[in-house]
Design a protein around this nucleic acid. Structure first.
Lengths: 357, 357
DNA sequence: CTGTTAGCGCTTTCAT
DNA sequence: ATGAAAGCGCTAACAG
């Protein structure tokens, strides 16, 4: 297995080859080349030399480093410093734009503070046995976990690292540094209000078959919003988070006599909504004339399909940014901001008044 | 904390506080708790103790480690070993399922060899100044880069690490350990053959406005395939890799007199194809009756839209797996397999015979 | 201003 | 079968 094992061939009388024979350039090589000590190199390259090293020496050192193509050994630095300036972002799926945008937001804030962010896609099964602290070999200063399934949480507590939860149950936070949440419930309330105002009274909820806070929140909020006005009915059907599963679930819900058929399909996710639209068309129903459909997330898909989806826009970048900020705060002993982020209904072409009976 | 020797009574003497006061548990803490030397701990926990440490001692050590919740310090291990068993996977975009699947494939192979894979989404601008070796703070043994834009390549050569390119120009490989490619050209040829067989003669190519090998390959292959038979015309229009950009580009191409209008839109990507379908419908044209549309990649989107897209399926997982295998080979001095991976046209509902004039 | 020194926590000879 | 000791490359006290 050992690959790069030329390691340390008994170096005879050194003719001062500024670069170690087989290995990488070290700070000592730079020091030798510049004719200074290792400490000076560290100071200069670490940019803490103002008033401690002469301008001229600093220049020499930088020149030598450039010349030799010196790159500091992270492992050594991390070992010495005891921290890595690296955070792990755990996401349930790589595919989704939502998480891509969360990453972008987190990475932006991280970069401003000299931190890096490493992605860990939680294995699909999301069994409790996940171990990001072994799998992502990077040594870590903290963990940010987004939208994790309930049972995955438990496994997450390894390493005793600061943990920031994103889009997750705020009450689960025993030992959690902070929870950054979206106002999911308000989003669902906006959906309900929109549809009720259009005149809908028979609803069906296409729920994601994923046991996580964010989806329980959506279900609860919809139930309450619909129950708040007299009269309306609410059916519910679950589906895996895929277009095809959404299509099948919607088909089950729509295949009933017209007078009992829901006039509005509220979906937990844009993928499900896309499936719902396909189901409707497959049954000869028009969207939105015969049945209105709403999504959630406002992914690119929402405007890729026809008609474009009425959906709830989630400020994903902001979630990531706030998550990273919270982690940084926790790391520095400050108390993280924890107000929920607002979300916004974006009405488009997939919703309209219910059909006249 | 009670006295720590719950596992190993009888070893009088040291009341040693098995866990360092403020910090994490180290292998020395474990050694003390188990009443052995650090070396023994390393041997046992590194699973190289057969015949070197007694069964009984090994048990004691493992018990102590478990008891104390010991986790080896990766930074120290990496420093000592000079390698990290970590590879970096550089991808141009997080959003795409394609890269998610490449990751999955790479990670699977990596795991079998005790490696981890860390993702580095190359910044959107893909300016040449990217530095994954600083951004992803993890120390790395090698880099796998997928579908990178041409100018991004140059920046990639930092660190002198083994580099495996995926879906990239094989000739760019100066200093590259290996290139794992898809038979992109053959995919495009299959598309052309399919459409020609259906009777199409007026084509338009919706090209991705991204300067990378994979898209140049698609353009070249289509041009050649169409030129190979007498008669056909081929227009070309570029668009950013987004549905809306694809829609606009398709609109430009379709907004001409019916007798000059292309009857088949060959798109570089499923996103573009989805946009093309929207454009067609927006202009009152039916897909595939009035115009056929093909995609590339076979993303989930391909079956989410209506009609489902005829597209070229790319074996993304296999690409990732082969990439990781090639990196492992290079690391161990073996010579990587470099045959292109086959791709397959999947005919669906978005293509049909051209309209009768 | 600059050099010397002492480890960070781990693995690995080499003695015992 | 086990322990002692060296050292990976780096940074931060502390001397000079």
């Amino acid at each position: 297995m050992a690959s790069t094992d030329s390691g340390r061939p008994g170096a005879g009388g050194t003719p001062a080859p500024a670069r170690a024979a087989g290995g990488r350039t070290t700070s000592r090589d730079v020091a030798r080349a510049a004719g200074v000590s290792q400490a000076t190199v560290s100071l200069v390259l670490g940019d803490k030399w103002r008033g401690r090293v002469s301008e001229r020496t600093a220049g020499t050192v930088r020149e030598a480093a450039r010349e030799l193509g010196y790159r500091p050994n992270l492992a050594a630095r991390n070992l010495r410093l005891g921290r890595t300036r690296t955070a792990l972002l755990v996401v349930p799926a790589l595919t989704s734009e939502f998480f891509a945008r969360v990453y972008t937001g987190a990475n932006g804030v991280a970069a401003e503070h000299g931190f890096g962010v490493v992605l860990y896609p939680s294995p699909v099964g999301t069994g409790p046995a996940l171990d990001p602290f072994d799998s992502a070999r990077a040594a870590l200063d903290g963990v940010i976990a987004s939208s994790m399934a309930a049972d995955t949480l438990s496994g997450m507590r390894g390493g005793g690292l600061p943990l920031v939860m994103l889009d997750s149950d705020p009450r689960a936070g025993t030992g959690t540094a902070a929870t950054v949440n979206l106002d999911i419930a308000d989003g669902m309330r906006q959906v309900a209000r929109h549809l009720l105002a259009l005149g809908h009274r028979r609803f069906a909820h296409l729920a994601a078959a994923v046991d996580s806070w964010t989806f329980r929140e959506r279900a609860g909020a919809l139930t309450r919003a619909v129950a708040a006005v007299p009269g309306p009915a609410l059916a519910r059907e679950s589906a895996a988070l895929e277009v095809e599963a959404g299509r099948r679930a919607a088909e089950r819900v729509l295949r009933v006599a017209a007078e009992r058929r829901p006039t509005a399909l509220v979906c937990d996710d844009d993928l499900l909504a896309a499936g719902a639209c396909k189901a409707a068309r497959g049954l000869g129903l028009r969207v939105p004339e015969d049945v209105s459909v709403t999504g959630f997330d406002d992914l690119a898909l929402a405007t890729a399909v026809d008609p474009e989806l009425t959906t709830v826009r989630l400020p994903a970048e902001a979630v990531g940014a706030r998550g990273m900020t919270a982690l940084l705060d926790a790391l520095d002993g400050r108390v993280p901001d924890t107000a929920p982020l607002p979300v916004l209904l974006v009405p488009r072409a997939s919703t309209g008044p219910p059909p006249r009976p």
